[in-house]
């Protein structure tokens, strides 16, 4: 199946030039909070991608029957139902990660990416396009999460996915020269790292801004 130009734009735009986090400034809360380690960040990205895509499809299917005045409540209920499903699945199959993510799974409901995409795209577009848009935005969100989590886990605790990358013998405690950067694990560093990502993104995409 050949993808048309428009389809491509809908799917791939959010990965770079129209990224939900660094360009549209949506979904910052969870992006910052879950990036101390790669594993929870990855689980969070997958959950958000699935939920955005499905919520977009459902809202797009019922878009003509939703009364304008209560549309926000309808959208919230659709999203809340999906999030409950994902949360129960995580508790059943990945309990420790679900505990680590704690309230942030529930907070996917109020993730601005969801409401933003539902309002701006799914309410006015066809089902298939909405699905691609949701998928694209979810992946755009995932890229940033994984990049930030990669840096924070590597420098903050010397591991990736919990596997040691920086050898034990390098540490000062074992007579080496290396010490973990404790600041990386702190919440403040997530903000500054995202700022660096934005800086980098804007300097290579000059024409977009």
């Amino acid at each position: 199946m050949a993808l048309s130009q428009k389809t491509k734009e809908t799917l791939l735009g959010p990965l770079n030039t129209n990224n939900p986090i660094v360009v549209q400034v949506l979904g910052i809360c969870s992006a910052l909070a879950v990036t101390v380690q790669l594993k929870p960040a990855l689980v969070m990205s997958i959950s958000v991608t699935i939920i955005v895509a499905l919520a977009n499809v459902i809202v797009s299917l019922i878009r003509n029957t939703i009364p304008m005045r209560i549309r926000i409540i309808v959208q919230l209920v659709v999203v809340a139902a999906l999030v409950t499903l994902v949360s129960e699945v995580l508790k059943a199959f990945a309990y420790d990660v679900a505990m680590q993510l704690s309230v942030y799974i529930g907070l996917i409901i109020t993730n601005c990416i969801l409401m933003g995409r539902l309002e701006a795209f799914a309410m006015t577009n066809k089902v298939w396009d909405s699905f691609l848009d949701g998928l694209g935005n979810g992946l755009g969100y995932s890229i940033i999460l994984v990049v930030v989590a990669f840096v924070r886990e590597l420098f903050g605790s010397g591991t990736l996915f919990g596997i040691r990358i920086i050898p034990e013998s390098w540490y000062v405690a074992n007579g080496g020269f290396y010490e973990n950067c404790g600041l990386m694990v702190m919440p403040a560093m997530a903000l500054i790292l995202v700022a660096c990502v934005i800086w980098f993104h804007r300097s290579i995409n000059k024409e977009s801004k």
Binding site: P187, A190, L191, I192, I198, W199, R202, K206
Partner: peptide, 23 residues
């Protein structure tokens, strides 16, 4: 402020520094 950092970028850094202070 350096051009690519203007607006959103510098705001993030400000919030980061404030978060450091609040720690």
């Amino acid at each position: 402020v350096p051009k690519p950092l203007q607006g959103l970028g510098i705001t993030f850094i400000e919030v980061g520094l404030m978060a450091l202070a609040f720690m």
